[in-house]
Design a protein around this nucleic acid. Structure first.
Length: 568
RNA sequence: CGGGGUAUGGCGCAGUCUGGUAGCGCACCUGCUUUGGGAGCAGGGAGUCGGGGGUUCGAAUCCCUCUACCCCGACCA
């Protein structure tokens, strides 16, 4: 390709609304343009990258024996009503009517459609297991789209759905998909981690997420420094503290704490460390309010809390009026002593002695409170998010917390959809058996953003070789005037193309600085500079995007040199 | 959903408080010069000042209203 035929749309200045580096660089490098909130056009250079990601995903899915199909993006409401998700899914599901007034949605995921297909087409256990996949555009009406293609409303996803006669078969395919995903992200040149995950809105049992590690990631993941334990912080279990609780040393006292509300204020006002201040959160439950007690330095894990019996899922915090009406005191003065609410106490909070807590009277707190003496011994549960340094739940090592971008997610669904939609096959005995399902997603367009998040420098994108829009750029200096430069560049271009490389020849008549800046911004891994100065010495210059200095190469050595480069 | 902010040539911004002929940088077009790190000179084109309504002799500027986009929050005890 030539830049005259395959134009760059690079930007010197960044549109003001781009927040994170990958979004800025995708705009500046001319990979995408925004149409509306969460909706992006893929420009030619960006589309090349997207297609490369797709190709690797497709190759590895095919290698794993999955079969590709393509389902409609628009789906009839009936199927969603059958699965029960028409009512469950909420406003993220974009719904509309056709001219006959029939209800449809734009598919955010395809369990219903594939299950409908499977129940029609699959009759016998002999057809199982089977794993269907597609690469297709999804729409999720996100509350708050942001970060460019990382959280867009319309996005490209690879979704796969497997069907099985039994759990063992599902477990086998699940494991195979786990390995396939690891291979895909390795081939893409990304630093990633597979972690145990919550099943969320899709439902089902076992589940792993694949995260590209990056500071800007929206998820926190916890992993052990001494084992292969890794989990989304949403899920990571906080173990109860070991050893006995310290014995009480203080009497319980009611103290005035006028205007003191937050844990930090309480701690400062009373001179008690935050770890010895307990906070009491009030949430809505199936029958009125429920109180959750945590250590002041810990944060509530909403996923864990929502799973507690009697607590609403998803979790809803009670508002100030509700609390005041029920307890006679405001948020900020609530505590477990004498509290007339169902109470859940976090393991760590139940292990604190001589603690401070709200007194259920405005402007008053208790100090020196002790479980089992001033209030009943609590039964403790896991309520909090793990923090850096917590013991690993598998008993080996300590947890570290890093941030990640979720790019893949695999689930063992079980029969959630197949049962609701009556998808069964006949087994060896001729009995109808509800099929067991798995599903496996990869955020194809998100990967492009995630890759940039992980691979860039101050000059722009530094693509991993396998997904670079082109492998090699030829930068001819003084293209118009120097016939020698032009002829050499053309000859090189032909030779590299013939060698099977993807080459972009920058035949714009622009000054070298402009050319170099653009080629670095768009992140081409290898650059050959052709200029009279080097040609006088009988060479051209080779510059790797991720390395410092250029080296001289004789013309006939260029193809060999590029071939010898390790794929990264 | 709640809170905050922004909207002025393609992009980035000033001008708005204090009403009086719409400006700057980059980009773009033409010509000449230039060609190893985002060139120089000269000339040029391009804006319903987000939409609608109002106040006024006069509105980018003041008032009302709508829309779009962005940010923050949805752990506060």
């Amino acid at each position: 390709m030539r830049t005259s035929q395959f134009p760059l749309f690079t930007l010197k200045e960044v549109p003001a609304d781009a927040e994170i580096v990958s979004h800025r660089l995708m705009l500046r490098a001319g990979l995408i343009r925004k149409l509306a909130s969460g909706l992006y056009t893929w420009l030619p250079w960006g589309l090349r990258v997207l297609h490369k990601v797709e190709r690797i995903v497709r190759e590895e899915m095919n290698r794993a024996g999955a079969v590709e199909l393509l389902m409609p993006a628009v789906q009839p409401a009936e199927l969603w009503k059958e699965s029960g998700r028409w009512d469950q899914y909420g406003p993220e599901l974009l719904r509309f009517h056709d001219r006959h007034g029939r209800e449809f949605c734009y598919g955010p995921t395809h369990e219903e459609v594939i299950t409908d297909l499977a129940r029609r087409e699959l009759r016998s256990y002999r057809q199982l297991p089977i794993n269907f996949y597609q690469i297709q555009t999804k729409f999720r009406d996100e509350v708050r789209p942001r970060f460019g293609v990382m959280r867009a409303r319309e996005f490209v996803m690879k979704d796969a759905y497997s069907f099985h006669l039994d759990e063992d078969s599902l477990a086998e395919t699940y494991q195979q998909m786990y390995e396939t995903y690891a291979r895909i992200f390795t081939r893409l040149g990304l630093e990633f981690r597979a972690v145990q995950a919550d099943t969320g809105a899709i439902g089902g049992r076992a589940s792993h997420e694949f995260h590209v590690l990056a500071e800007s990631g929206e998820d926190a993941i916890a992993f052990s420094d001494a084992s292969d334990y890794a989990a989304n912080v949403e899920l990571a279990e906080a173990l109860p503290p070991s050893g006995p609780r310290p014995a009480p040393t203080q009497p319980m006292q009611l103290v005035d704490t006028p205007g003191v509300r937050s844990i930090e204020e309480v701690s400062r006002f009373l001179g008690v460390p935050v770890e010895r201040c307990l906070k009491t959160l009030v949430v809505r439950g199936d029958e009125g309010l429920v109180a959750l007690v945590l250590r002041g330095d810990h944060t509530l894990n909403e996923v864990k809390a929502a799973k507690l019996p009697g607590v609403t899922a998803p979790l809803e915090m009670a508002d100030d009026e509700e609390i005041r009406a029920r307890l006679g005191a405001g948020v900020g003065s609530i505590g477990p002593v004498g509290l007339d609410l169902p109470l859940y106490v976090d393991h760590a909070a139940g292990h604190v002695a001589d603690f401070v807590c709200g007194a259920n009277v405005d402007g008053k707190h208790y100090t020196g409170v002790n479980w089992g003496r001033d209030l009943p011994e609590p039964e403790t549960v896991d309520l909090r998010n793990v923090v850096e340094g917590d013991p690993s739940p598998d008993g080996r090592g300590r947890l570290h917390i890093v941030r990640g971008i979720e790019v893949g997610h695999i689930f063992q669904l079980g029969t959630k959809y197949s049962a609701a939609m009556k998808a069964s096959v006949l087994d060896e005995q001729g009995r109808a058996v509800t099929m067991t399902m798995g599903c496996y997603g990869i955020g194809v367009s998100r990967i492009v953003g995630a890759a940039i998040e992980q691979h860039h420098d101050e000059r722009g994108i530094v693509w991993p070789e396998p997904i670079a829009p082109f492998q090699v750029a030829i930068a001819p200096i003084n293209w118009r005037k120097s016939q020698r430069v032009r002829e050499t560049a053309e000859r090189l271009y032909m030779a590299l193309e013939e060698a099977g490389m993807e080459v972009i020849l920058d035949d714009r008549d622009v000054r070298p600085g402009v050319m170099f800046a653009d080629l670095e911004l768009v992140g081409i891994p290898h650059r050959i500079t052709v200029g009279d100065r080097a040609l006088d010495r009988g060479v051209v210059e080779y510059q790797a995007r991720r390395e410092g200095d250029a080296i001289d190469l004789p013309l006939d050595a260029v193809v060999g040199h590029l071939r010898a480069r390790p794929q990264r």
